[in-house]
Simulated scan of single mutants.
Amino acid sequence: MVEVRRLNERGIEAFENYISGLSNDGGLTLPLGILTDDRTSEPLDIELTVNHLAEFATRYDMGVYLVDLLKQVRSQQLLGDSGFWTWLALCWFDQLCPLDSKGKRKPKKPYNYVLSPNWNHRPRHALYTTWMLVANHRESARFMLSKKPSARGELIEQLAARQYFMSCRGVIEAAHRIYFDSSPDFS
């Protein structure tokens, strides 16, 4: 377990530089020191600890963990906190952007890991969106989050691009019934 912090401006910039550097050398060492270094991160105003070694089978499982973690705090405190969400993405970067068979990482756009102030990019943040979907829609969000933590499906991209759909419980519940089969696979 590790105490959750937030990346400061310097820490966010260092993480963004790391992500950008992966396009040239996908084997760069993950800069986990950024998480605890006082020059790149700072304590939260609240006490939270996270299992940084937790492994999640699906993005939904990751969302359930985050909902449980954040149920003890007012979510408004952390809702738009880029440093907090970016810290979490770096903490679990091995799952969000795992090494391939050649020991290289192939990251998506930086805003998938660094919570952007641009509202058009915010729904693409791997953890923020995952948490929000599970917090707002519980089991009905499973159909969008049933892949590995590193995978994003086309369905979530399309729904996340339309804020109305993401916040409308009826739309999400209907889509869950249409797109998710909870029956056991006997093949």
Rank of each mutant, 00 (worst) to 15 (best):
M1F: 03
V2E: 13
V4R: 03
V4C: 06
R6E: 13
L7Q: 08
G11E: 06
I12M: 15
A14W: 00
Y18F: 15
Y18H: 13
Y18A: 07
G21K: 03
G21W: 01
L22Y: 03
S23K: 12
N24E: 09
D25M: 05
G27I: 05
L28E: 08
L28P: 05
L30P: 04
L30Q: 07
L30F: 00
L32Q: 07
G33Q: 08
G33H: 12
I34W: 02
D37N: 15
R39L: 13
S41W: 08
E42K: 10
P43H: 08
P43I: 06
P43K: 06
L44T: 10
E47C: 01
T49G: 03
T49S: 15
N51E: 11
N51C: 09
E55Y: 12
T58Y: 08
Y60F: 15
D61Y: 05
G63N: 06
Y65K: 03
V67W: 00
L78K: 00
L78W: 01
G83D: 07
G83A: 05
G83I: 01
W87H: 05
L90W: 01
L90F: 07
C91I: 10
F93K: 02
Q95L: 08
C97R: 07
P98S: 08
P98C: 06
S101Y: 10
G103I: 09
K104D: 13
K106I: 00
Y111T: 02
Y111F: 15
N118P: 00
W119M: 11
N120V: 04
N120E: 12
R122G: 04
P123F: 09
H125A: 09
A126S: 15
L127Q: 03
V134F: 04
E139T: 13
E139M: 09
S140F: 10
R142N: 03
F143A: 01
F143Y: 15
L145P: 01
L145Y: 01
S146I: 11
S146L: 06
K147N: 06
K148N: 08
A151M: 10
R152D: 02
E154V: 08
E154H: 10
L155T: 05
L155C: 07
I156K: 00
I156D: 04
E157G: 11
A161L: 05
Q163L: 10
Y164I: 09
F165Q: 09
M166L: 14
M166Q: 07
R169P: 05
I172E: 01
I172R: 07
H176N: 14
F180A: 05
D181T: 06
S183E: 14
P184V: 07
P184N: 07
D185Q: 14
F186V: 11
S187C: 02
S187F: 06
